[in-house]
């Protein structure tokens, strides 16, 4: 849930990049870090933790500065996609406000995309969150591979596999070239901010 501090006039949102392993979640953040770190005035941090053996997740604090009198801070996280790191994924999802599901467009990744989305659904339930209610944006990553002759899944097939019931916005992207990476981030932040309904006692 979004962290709002009325006294300090501070809003913190947590956005998680979720998806199968090797799908391009970290590459998304690396691109933002490389191209916008000066404007954002922050750096990406890779955290090494213990519990699920040695694992990594990425953290990228994004300071948007003063907006409507509030200091808006966005925390971007990625999760390890490999199935064996489920404990970390659950941990990172704690308090999530918005999710970018980075699906891999490679044809061979079809099942992994489906399983990863299923895993997201199950892990959200553990935090009493509903995948149907949370701001969620699909990013179909590696669109550049189709031009290189690799067998890729069409956006129609991916929406059919993953988004048939959810009916969420989706976008094709290439985290490697940066195509639509910033747009993805902009969209999910907008979706998440628009979703905040806060009333404080």
């Amino acid at each position: 849930m979004a962290f709002i501090n009325i006294r300090n006039k501070e809003i913190q949102l947590k956005i998680v990049y979720y998806g199968p392993g090797q799908g391009g979640k970290t590459t998304n953040l690396l691109y933002i870090n490389k191209n916008f770190s000066e404007k954002i005035k922050s750096q990406m941090v890779t955290i090494d933790t213990y519990g699920d053996r040695t694992i990594f997740f990425d953290f990228f604090p994004l300071d948007l500065g003063q907006i409507n009198g509030f200091d808006v801070k966005i925390q971007l996280y990625t999760v390890p996609g490999q199935s064996r790191y489920d404990t970390t994924r659950k941990l990172v999802l704690n308090g999530v406000d918005g999710i970018v599901f980075v699906a891999d467009m490679l044809a061979s990744m079809r099942r992994k995309n489906i399983l990863s989305l299923k895993n997201l659904h199950e892990n959200l339930i553990k935090y009493h969150k509903n995948i149907f209610n949370i701001p969620l944006l699909f990013q179909f990553n590696k669109v550049d591979l189709s031009q290189k002759g690799y067998p890729v899944l069409t956006p129609e097939r991916l929406t059919d596999d993953l988004n048939r019931q959810l009916k969420r916005p989706w976008i094709t992207a290439s985290a490697l070239t940066g195509e639509n990476v910033a747009l993805t981030l902009k969209k999910i932040i907008s979706m998440t901010t628009a979703n905040i309904k806060i009333s404080l006692n």
Binding site: F36, L64, N68, K186, S199, L200
Partner: peptide
Amino acid sequence: IDLDYKNLATGVEERLDEIFADD
């Protein structure tokens, strides 16, 4: 206290447009 989240959302969107304008 109710936060005017509609204005906040617009403000955030404008700020993001500034940051990512080139891209």
